[in-house]
Each structure stands twice: as C-alpha cells, then as structure tokens.
Amino acid sequence: MINPNSTPILTVRGLRASINGTEILKGIDLTVKSGEIHAIMGLNGSGKSTFAKVLAGHSAYEVTGGSIQFEDKDLLELPPEERARAGLFLAFQYPIEIPGVANTQFLRLAYNTVQAQRGKEELDPLEFDDFVREKMKLLEMKPDFLDRSVNEGFSGGEKKRNEILQMALLEPKLSILDETDSGLDIDALKIVAQGVNQITNKDNATILVTHYQRLLDYIVPDYVHVMQAGRIVITGGKELALELETRGYDWINENNSSIAGVLA
C-alpha cells in the first residue's frame, strides 16, 4: 500500500548495465518504499529480468553507471551474499537444480545465515523442521519435498513454490519476483499469490517482474512500470496493466506521450 510517510527501501538512479559489452540497462530510475508493491512489465528482451539480476548482484552483468541505494547501504559495494543477508531476495525465474543437496539442509543453512546476520537465534535441525513445516502449509507443499534435492526433478510449479517458501523463511525487506507466474497453472498461481500476499506487510516491499497482467489479478500492485529497451518508459497505477492487457505493448509506442499525460 502507498503511505506518504513510509521510508524508501530501494532507490535506483540512472542505472546502466551490460553483459559481454552489450548494454542492456540504459538508465533506470526507480524508488520503492516500504509497504509498496511494484510491478515491472515489458516484452521479452526489454531488460526486466536483467534488472532483477543486477539488483541481486549476478556477476555476469557489469554495472557501467548509476547508483543503487538499499536502505542505508550502497548496494553496488556488496557481493551477492551480503545483499541477501541485508534483506534483498530474488525469486528466480528458472530456479537451478542442485543435485545431492537436500532441500531441508539448504533451507536451514540459508535461514540460519540470515538469522545470524540479524543477531537472531539459529535453529537446530529439529526446531527448523517444525518451523519449515508450518511455512509449507501456507503453500500447500508435500512434506516429502524437504528430503528431495534442491529443485531436482521438481515440476515448474514446485520450483516456484520452493522460491516463495524461501521468501517466507527469510523474511526479506525487498522481494523481487522474476516471472514467478510463468509456467504456473491457475491453481498454482493462486496458491503462490496467496503466499506472497501473506508475506507482504507495511515494513517490506515487493517488485513483481512479469510479462502478463494475470498475476496482478491476485497480487495487486501499487505501481506499474513498463520497461522498453532498457528503460522504464511509463509508470502508472494498477489500471495501466489492464490497459496493456487489452491494447498490447504496441499501444505504448503509438501513444507514449499522450498516455503519460493521462496518467500523470
């Protein structure tokens, strides 16, 4: 929700980034305050997933300009693990499989690492087991999933649920959900959305990166940004997403200046 008194969690200014010498992000400005949900929409190749990965610190991308402030920290100074420990979470579009590493072991290590950073109590395997099972109910996950290897042989839906489970465990300040809706059937989408809605509150913030309006029926954004060729070309409220759904992305190119006027 939008609250004029809330404080910024993320402040991005003039962010430029490239991969293998090709510039993908060409100057992004974005401010996300606590309590807010932002949707970033755009066609494939518009740079929205790159933006998510650059925020998380993926080493394949080189930041060539601009700044990212995360609460009181200069995010660009921090390696990825420290960004995560500071409370930045990325739910991956394609969560990678890690054969041989049990999910429960992985989740507990991640949980305890973040807990230690926050000066809070770490949990032993038994305590953690109780704790994680509670959280799993939220996402209607089967218990056997804890003993399986991280994401190995998971269906698309299971992988996405696993991401949201991790989000629920780690209680991030800022969650970035990269195309979390892709590959989900409508039931799974509802469950995932329900999970996200239970996690969001007035002290944290969420960025939804998505191609389709569909997800936004279940997680209602406060702001919608449209990216094109590495820039945010337009910003509006949740109704912008609906307009895009009916009129398509071409509509923006044709009417860029006039829409901006309407929404301002």
Binding site: A56, P80, F89, L109, Q117
Partner: peptide, 9 residues
C-alpha cells in the same frame, strides 16, 4: 549465484 542469493557464501 543461487546459493549466494540466499546468503550462502
């Protein structure tokens, strides 16, 4: 990267 995004070095 997946590990590090979860705070694990």
């Amino acid at each position: 990267f997946y590990f590090s995004q979860r705070g694990i070095g």
